[in-house]
Design a protein around this nucleic acid. Structure first.
Lengths: 211, 211
DNA sequence: CTAATAATGTACCGGTCGATACATAAATAT
DNA sequence: ATATTTATGTATCGACCGGTACATTATTAG
């Protein structure tokens, strides 16, 4: 049943998507109210905007939330313990790369690119959710490496955060490559190459004379 | 001999450095004239600013130029053909990582973080120099991998851009890790790990029974 | 019907943005 | 000493920033 009051003349859900695209493309500060209003259902007024979203920052948080629930799910496999850890990492990288290059939305990853959305410490609240997401993905890489060690696929002598940092930094860097129009095929071939860092961290052969 | 006219009351050279720090920290758009003016020699007026630098964008370009001539030199070893290509890449990564974590200036790499300084295609001129620098470093990585192949250190079957993309994306991602306060020691251990991707791309053993 | 609720359109708020006009002050050139 | 050159201080420009006041319109609740 519909609620009381005059009905909205634009699709709020679609409006959030359009706002998400603008924030994704330009960042929080560089996206203006006028841009946001103009992009929503062919243009809405300021009061309509504030009635629907409260404030620019509240809308941004809503967009981040939506991003995390949709596009950012590509890296959720890092937490899937049913998947072999090496496969989880490679899958996360490949799915993220494909997502970042998809047509129909800005290139790159909003979570990674958002590192510049909170310049000073004061405005840290703006991008706190993005920072938290990066931290979580970072822990996901570490957990996969730890699982690899526990399963005997990786040398127990390596530091989990070190190998995880390879995939973490590589993934964060993909956004820059995507924005710079490095071809997806190159990035995908790069993923195959970076996975060799995992393979090189395998334990020494049993009975190796120098182990 | 000094030039004619009333002398400047602030050190223009130091002012560029202070502006560089602000742009590095906040990006082009998020750095305001008031911030820049306030940071220069204890505060200067708007006319003094424009007399000295012309415009905000002109100052930004000057800051980028200075960054490229100083901090960004850490990756110049990629073009040093007297250095073994693997060593050149590892040196570039280690020097850049140390630079990005140095105290006394913002964390991360201005060239990498600047990818968000030009949201739309219209303002591309603002960050064109940064984009060109990334493109140049990218070519440097490719050139090193190509040299590795030519020297027989790498399997000639690999695509140079693919392995180069590993180091390229890794380097670009370091800025995010630095901003996220991932410890330098972790990043440095990560560099050792990512270099294993190079080692894994070595040619098959001569006379290998399965080659 | 009337009351209550909620979104809309018009017009506008104070603040900050980057940038400038204009007169004045401090140096050099002759 | 005077002219020239350049930077300074004060005061301000129009444009845009995020955000609102207020009356109006469209819907539901009773």
């Amino acid at each position: 049943m519909a609620v009381m009051g005059r009905p909205r003349t634009f699709d709020r859900d679609k409006a959030v998507d359009e706002a998400l695209h603008l924030f994704w493309q330009n960042g929080f500060e560089a996206t203006s109210l006028n841009q946001l209003k103009a992009a929503m259902g062919g243009g809405i007024s300021a009061p309509s905007f504030y009635a629907a979203f409260g404030s620019k920052e509240a809308l941004f948080q809503e967009c981040v939330q939506r991003y995390l629930e949709t596009y950012a799910q590509v890296t959720e496999c890092l937490w899937d313990t049913d998947m072999a850890p090496r496969e989880a990492i490679e899958t996360a990288l490949r799915q993220s790369a494909r997502m970042q290059y998809e047509r129909g939305h800005p290139k790159g990853c909003m979570v990674g690119l958002g590192v510049m959305s909170a310049p000073s410490e004061e405005h840290a609240s703006v991008s706190a959710a993005l920072t938290r997401s990066r931290s979580r993905t970072r822990k996901g890489f570490i957990a996969c490496v730890q699982r690899g060690i526990d399963r005997g696929e990786l040398d127990p002598g390596i530091a989990p955060e070190a190998l995880a940092a390879v995939f973490d930094a590589f993934l964060m860097g993909l956004s820059v490559l995507a924005r710079d129009r490095v071809r997806l095929s190159v990035v995908e071939a790069g993923i195959s190459q970076v996975m060799l860092a995992w393979d090189s961290a395998a334990p020494k052969h049993r009975g190796s004379p120098y182990a």
